[in-house]
Amino acid sequence: MFILSLTYLKSNDEADRYMEPHMAWVKEGYAKGWFLASGRKIPRTGGVILAIGDRAAIEAYVAADPFTIHGVAAYDITELAVTTTAEGLEILKH
């Protein structure tokens, strides 16, 4: 599993300019079966996405995020070897 932590490099106003294409990119990540959960950080300094899949594919996909392309946010990708989950969350062990 991967934790994709986005940190805004530009203002929230600038992030809002690219939010619609970013959210289309997020929805496509869900459609590919890679994204499991996502949301904004509080306070609003970026966001977090929980993902599964191949690291190289995830890294390439992150590079295609409109936030990345336009320098709005930087990603930190942390790989996590999940060994124990609550019932029903076994998909996190991929």
Rank of each mutant, 00 (worst) to 15 (best):
W34C: 10
A56G: 05
Y18G: 00
K27N: 13
A64W: 01
D16W: 05
A57W: 04
L50S: 05
R17N: 12
I49D: 03
E79G: 07
I42S: 13
T83V: 15
V48I: 11
E79V: 06
L36T: 02
I3F: 13
Y8N: 05
A81N: 10
S5D: 10
A64N: 12
I42H: 12
I3G: 08
S5K: 14
T68I: 02
N12Y: 03
P21M: 06
S5W: 08
L4S: 04
L4P: 00
F2M: 08
M19A: 13
A60E: 15
I49M: 09
E87Y: 03
Y18P: 00
E20A: 14
E79Q: 15
E14V: 14
A31M: 03
P66N: 11
H94M: 11
E79T: 12
I58W: 03
A73Y: 05
V62E: 11
G88E: 11
A51R: 04
Y8G: 01
P66M: 12
Y8R: 04
T7S: 15
V48F: 04
D76Q: 14
L92I: 04
F2G: 05
R55A: 10
R40D: 07
A74H: 08
A15E: 09
A51V: 08
M19P: 00
G88Q: 11
E90N: 06
D65V: 01
G46D: 06
P66Q: 15
E79M: 08
G33F: 14
W34R: 12
I77V: 12
K32P: 00
G47H: 05
L50G: 03
H22M: 06
I77P: 00
A37S: 14
G33M: 14
V62N: 01
M19N: 05
T78H: 08
Y18L: 11
A24C: 05
L50N: 01
K41R: 15
